[in-house]
Design a protein around this nucleic acid. Structure first.
Lengths: 191, 191
DNA sequence: TTAACTTCTTACCATAGGTCAATTTTTATT
DNA sequence: AATAAAAATTGACCTATGGTAAGAAGTTAA
């Protein structure tokens, strides 16, 4: 929690009351590897801030194939924003790739901060805007790069993540099969 | 402008002063087909609300190929959020696909609303969240659907847009070549 | 209306990446 | 450490989509 508060204070001035409010609406939780925080099809109203470990969100399509939307490591937020925003049941599953520590927030209560403590707004907005920007970049990358180039970029963006992920997690994030990723890796070691 | 105000009031209560402020920082502009509002490589600080017509944002990659990030029709916002958020020169070009009317806002001034009129915040946040959700969906679609399925979905989402767009605009949005789109279309008429 | 230009289609071939199945390697469990 | 289970690799083959080029069809502007 201290770390999140520090990150917030890095960007905005946060009153003691706001800090206490944040504290009051969050729960520190630890999940084992393989634990499922949100399950596709079930209700969602939590969002998670990762303080340690590694999680991912993915969906399973009509053919039973997994597609990874996001990895979340230390200091990232993760949830099913589609479901929360549209007030639907989860379209994604969020699972731990290794033992992880998170701060669990109720999505509605976190919105309440903005009413109670408008000072918090620039932080929230900055987060959302950064999120939009990263999604725009991902879409543009998907449109213009080959699978191999996307993999290179992935390794730059998540330099230490391979120790926690399975091959098929990464493949399903890049939009290829695990077999293709395996072949791409072989090519790279040749050069 | 009236329409935007109406849309805002639909969601939040907007004071007369806030309304006047919005009015004071926007300019109604009309652009001809082919006009370029933002050009890749140049400075950006404007965001546009479309009141009539159709625009798109795209980037040109190292091989000279275009990749469409977004189409914007009536009541949509369009700009180069990557550039604005990161304070960089434009990574995208925004052009009119037909004669269009827009409200032009200075990106910094529009942020000012939130300081001056905190009441506006829920509207802004709702927009951003909806944007995130639509980008998540687009990424998931790109990961799990075939080109033909993505085209079907595109036609559902933008039912009337084909009259303004060239074949290659749509292809470059779907992540395929215009030739492939042409073939997909032929297949559809067969069935 | 014609000419000039742009866009779309089509045919043929090429290729990145997918599928399936067998095998090897890694990881988890006892 | 031994075993079982899960994941990764590999090879043979397949398919969706890309590349190229030429001609057809639209569009624009004089």
């Amino acid at each position: 929690m201290k770390e999140l508060i520090k990150k917030i204070k890095n960007r905005i001035q946060l009153s003691l009351e706001a800090e206490e409010y944040l504290f009051s609406i969050s729960k520190e939780k630890t999940f084992a590897k393989g634990a499922v925080l949100i399950r596709q099809g079930q209700d969602v109203n939590k969002i998670y801030f990762v303080t340690d470990g590694c999680l991912r969100s993915y969906c399973i399509d009509k053919n039973g194939k997994e597609h990874t939307l996001q990895f979340a490591i230390k200091n990232w937020w993760i949830s099913d924003y589609i479901a929360i925003h549209n007030n639907e049941s989860a379209s994604l599953t969020v699972e731990c790739l290794k033992e992880s520590k998170v701060l669990e927030f109720n999505a509605k209560k976190i919105d309440g901060i903005l009413t109670l403590f408008p000072e918090y707004e620039p932080f929230q907005r900055h987060l959302l805007e950064r999120h939009v920007v990263s999604l725009h970049k991902r879409i543009l990358n998907q449109l213009q790069l080959t699978a191999s180039e996307r993999y290179d970029l992935f390794l730059e963006q998540y330099p230490d993540i391979e120790q926690y992920t399975r091959n098929y997690h990464i493949a399903s994030y890049l939009g290829i099969t695990q077999e293709s990723l395996s072949r791409i890796r072989v090519e790279k070691t040749k050069n």
